[in-house]
Structure formats: structure tokens, C-alpha cells
Design a protein around this nucleic acid. Structure first.
Lengths: 185, 185, 185, 185
DNA sequence: GATGAATGAGTCTTCATTCAT
DNA sequence: AATGAATGAAGACTCATTCAT
């Protein structure tokens, strides 16, 4: 169960804690206690808490990229692909102790100085945006139109994640999916 | 300039700081230093930092309610009203040091225990949602349809605020406005 | 119910709180809140918390003096008088939320500088001691012997109050009474 | 002079301060200043002020246990042993800045919630009580009688410590010793 | 590669008291 | 006689980080 590698163990443990309670609400002490590591070991692998955050966001990003790639490869219609992605979001919210998009949440607490984190956030967001663009390109011949529609779906998606968390309800995801599907029909 | 009333001075100062850097990143010490008050004076007026947060969110809400009421009273078409509201958001982002929706940001750092804060957030969000519903009712005879479209505009609006902050760009507001207007045409 | 006189209301309320939780654990704010008085009204009647403490100890002393006087006047044997006084202690412990002798407890937290408080404590203790001396004089012709035995009973009494509180048990009072009665037979 | 080990330095320093002025009257800041340590170093070794108190009481207890064991092993009569223990108390009062029994004093300021502290107090008190029981068993064949007399001596001892502090005098110790010796003759 | 003690600056909160009204 | 806002000092405790070993 317990990974022998300290670096990974820290990343994994911190990931769970950040996800559940937010980056700023979890301290180094708690992380190393949960990861059963010494404090200095932590700093051997990660020069700062901020760098751990980057590593975390990066790992989350990698996993989410796989999910999107799988959807893109599927032999289904554009609107079905989009619907599927919203379904994944809904499942994620239902299963895990969802606290809103980790990226937007982290953005809310990290100041402009945290360049690495800001880059991670922007990279992730642009990646999702690009995902919707690609799907829209399957439907619309006009590249500009594809971009515009993709962006709107992206914003619906973002709003859904945010407001589901704020309102503690699933309707935002469901309505956003319906809106996205409508945009593709 | 400097208000003689400590309570208001604290609220105003804290509001600016929370807005610029986020609730969890601003400490009591900084607030009282900026407000030129003694620490105990702070606690005379606000039993806790959390209660100050509630007061802040509440005051922000009140002001934003006025803006929405003014728009609703205007003799312009529904889509113009919605466009106007997005314009206000854009102006707000351009003028102030916008860091994303204060409510969503606060939601990102306050845990479930902060009942008062959570209620403020939900009340504010539902109020905006209701605003879009009312506008849509002017356009759509079918109440259900008005609700659905209003919800989608609400989600576009939320996504625009979030992603403008994440991506440090104004395109999300502009595209969201376009999408909202399209939904009303 | 609620006394119209603020000074007495404060004394009574503070007395209950000091008794239940100890002088140092009860703050001015709590006292004035419970007594439904303004802070400045408090300081009008009592120049400091310390002076309130003195007033409290003084009022407790007065009431306890009455109890001892009543026992002294009773037409019963010396050992019965002593036994009665220990019975009162036991009843007091059983009925009220006893936290140990208020005087000794206060002594434990007040430093040498609190002259007034120290005097109250010493006055009260000497008064109890004198009470036992008087009873012993009824029994022993030799004044020195009366003093010696009275002092021992006084110490048993004090030890009983202290250790009942420490050990959360009534055996110290009961054994002390038995010891005191034995000294008088 | 200055111990290199922060944990011990804190315990020792705090012990002196607690002894002189009482647990509740000494703050963390004062302790760390006197111990020349950083605040965080304190909390590395003691999770709370309460836990430091427990450690302090525990260390005092250990030392006092040794003293009692030594007396028990001495080849002297029971009443001489008891007298010796009271002599130690008197010496302690004369030499150190005695402020009353640290255990009873701490009991006076710690509420029921402090389970660890309460246990320390009870353990210490029962240990002294047991010490007197053992001495009495050397004298009295009847175990019940030994227990009763031991308890009375224990109460005299406790009363002596308390009232010496209250009355700023040594007579309570001297009279209690006389009373205890009488009980064993 | 790993340890844990040490750190200074910070967290939020409460204290008894004084002041102008 | 009564009010409540204002205060400086102190309360216990946590932060991310560095250091010698």
C-alpha cells in the first residue's frame, strides 16, 4: 500500500489533502505527518510548498489529459463527446469530496508572484479550452466559429464546476451540459 | 478622508484587502494596521475574522443588488440588459485589481463549517441567477424555458469571471456576453 | 429576580462565576455580560477586578461568619459543634458545584502584590481558626491545649476541603470529621 | 550552566516559574523568553501549555517519590518517619519561595477538561496518602485503623501546606507534625 | 537519502482598563 | 448613574523554512 518512494508518497498524500481542503488550508506539517516522512526529506524533494503545489497541479493535469484524449479518440459525435465530458465532471463531483476546480481554487489563493502555479493553471485551462475547440472543429467547417462555440462551452464548463461547488448542487453541471449540447446542434 | 467610525473603517479597509488578495491571505494584523485601529477595537465590532468576512460579503452584495435593480428598471430589451451586465463586469475587471469573483474565491478557502459565509455566497449567487431569470421572463413566455436559459447565462457569467482571472484576459467576458446575447435572440 | 442595583448585581453574578470557575478564569467581559451592565458601570463601582474579588471574598466571609456564630450559640457539646461544621462542608460540596475553598483557590492565583486579597484570605482563615479555638475552650481548661487542638482541627478542615476537590471524593471530609471528633473526646 | 537541550531547558525554566507564580499566571511567552528558545521550538516538544504542565507535575512527582522512598527505607520508628516528612516540608518552605502545594494550586485553576493534569494531581496525592498508609501499617496491626490514621495524617499534611501559604507562617506545619506524631503514639 | 530540533514571523483571539459622551 | 467605543499588552498556537547531524 504505502509507497516506498518518499517523493511520490508526499505528492500523493498532499494531493488528497489539497483536493479535500484546499492548498492554503493544508500545512507542511500535516502533509509530512500523513506521508510519514521527515520534514527535511520533504524539502529534499520539493524546495518549497509552492513547488509541491506545482507538482500536484501538474500530475492532476496529466491524468486529466488522458481522459480528454480518450474522449477525442472515441467514434462518437461531437455533441456526444462534449456530453461525455460533462458526465465525467458530474461523476467526479458525486464520487470524490469535490471542492470545486482545484486550479481555480488555487488561483484564488495564490498571488501574482507564484509564477509556476499561475503557469500551471493557465496551461491546464488552455488545454481544456483546446479540447473543446478540437471537438467543435469536427462539427463546424468555419474555424472561427468552432473557436467561438468551443470557448462558450468552455465557459459553461467552468461555470458549472464553480457554481456546483458554491450552491452545493448538481444542477449547474446538468444545465451546462444541456447548453453545450444545444450549441452543437 | 479617514472615517471617524472604526467599524466602518475596518470594513472598508478589509474589503479592499480581501478584494485584492483574497480572504485567507489577509490577516487581522494587516487589517488593523491599514485601518489604524487597535486589535481589541476590531474584536469589539466583529467577534471573529469570519464575521468580518460575512459583513464584507454582505456589503458587496448590497451594492451589487442596486446595480442589478437599475438594469432591470431600464427600458431596454432583454438582450441589451444582459449585455449591459456583462459590460459592467468587464469595466469592473478593467478598473479594479480584479482577482475573480470574491464569492467564489472565498468559497474556495472557507470550509463547510463557516455556515454564515456559505449562506452569503449562496444568497448572492441565487440573487444573480434570479436576475437573469427575470430578464428571460421578459423574452420567453414559457417559464421553464426562461429558467433554463437564465441558468445558462448565469453559468456563462460565472465562467467568464473565473476564467478571466485564471487566464488574465478579457476574452472570457466578451465571449460569454456574445453567448448570452445569442441565447436571447 | 434581577436586582435593580447594578453594584449588587455585579457582585452576585461575579460571585457565582468565581465560585464555579475560579477568580482567574473569569474575565470582566463575562461578568458584565452576565450582570447585564455596561463596562464603565462596572468600573464606577469597582475600581479594579481585584477590588471586586475583595468584595466577593468579603461577602462570602460575612455569610460564613453567621453560620459559625449560629453553631457557637447552639446548646450542644463541643464535638457535636465541630461535627456539625464538617457536615455543613459536606453538604456544601454535595449541593453546589464545589471547586475547593474559594480563599485557598484565590490564594493560588494572586501574587503577593494583591494586599487586599491576601488580607481577606488571612482574615477568613484566622476567623475559622478562632472558631475552632472557641469550641475547644469549652472543652479544655488549659488555653494552650485548646489552641493546639483547635489548630489541628483547623488543619484537618483545610485538608479536607483541598483534598476533596483534588480527589473528587467526599472521604476527606468524613475522615477529617472523625479525626476532629476524636481530638475532642 | 545553560542546558543545550531545549526540551529540558523549557521544562526546568517553566518549573521554576510555575512554582513561584502558579501555572495560570505564567504565559508561554515568558517561558520561552526565560528558556531562551523560539516559540515554535516549544511547540515542537510540547503540543500545548497543558502538556508542559503535565510534564512539570510529573517531574516534580518523580523527585518527591524518591524522597518518600528514602524515608520508608530508613531504620527509624513510624512517628520519626512522619516527623521527618513534615520536616522536609518545613525546609522546603523555608528555602524555596513556597507558594503552596503545586498540585493543589494547579488544581485550583485547571478545569475538569484538563484530564491529564487532573490525573497527575490525583496520582500524586494518592501516592502521598499511600506513603502515610505504609508507615501506619508498621505501627498498627489492624489494616483499617492504619488506613484511617494514615488518611488523617495526610489531611493534616495537606492542610499544613495550604495554610502555611495562606497565613504566611510556619506554625501550620509544626502543629500538623505534632498532631501527626500524636496520632502515632 | 534521511532525520528532527530549531527558528522568526505570523495566526486569531482575549485581557483589564480608560476614555469621551 | 450610566454608556459603549477604544486601547496596548498579552494570551495560546501555527506557519513555511533552515540547520547540523
Amino acid at each position: 500500500m504505502r509507497k516506498p518512494n518518499a517523493k511520490e508518497r508526499i505528492l500523493e498524500t498532499a494531493g488528497e489533502l489539497f483536493h479535500k481542503r484546499g492548498y492554503s488550508e493544508v500545512g507542511i506539517n500535516e502533509i509530512i505527518a500523513a506521508a510519514e516522512t521527515a520534514k527535511a526529506s520533504f524539502y529534499q524533494h520539493y524546495p518549497s510548498k509552492e513547488s509541491l503545489c506545482e507538482a500536484w497541479l501538474s500530475s492532476v493535469h496529466e491524468r486529466s489529459e488522458i481522459g480528454r484524449a480518450e474522449i477525442l479518440e472515441k467514434e462518437i459525435s461531437p455533441s456526444e463527446k462534449v456530453a461525455l465530458y460533462f458526465d465525467h465532471l458530474e461523476q467526479f463531483m458525486t464520487n470524490s469530496e469535490f471542492r470545486g476546480c482545484p486550479y481555480s481554487n488555487t488561483s484564488a489563493v495564490s498571488d501574482e508572484g507564484c509564477t509556476g502555479i499561475v503557469e500551471q493553471i493557465q496551461g491546464h485551462k488552455e488545454s481544456i479550452r483546446e479540447f473543446f475547440h478540437q471537438i467543435c472543429l469536427e462539427k463546424f467547417e468555419n474555424a472561427e466559429e468552432a473557436q467561438r462555440i468551443g470557448d462558450r462551452i468552455f465557459l459553461l464548463y467552468s461555470g458549472a464546476a464553480t457554481e456546483s461547488q458554491n450552491l452545493k448542487s448538481l444542477w449547474p453541471v446538468q444545465e451546462a451540459r444541456a447548453g453545450a449540447v444545444d450549441l452543437l446542434s
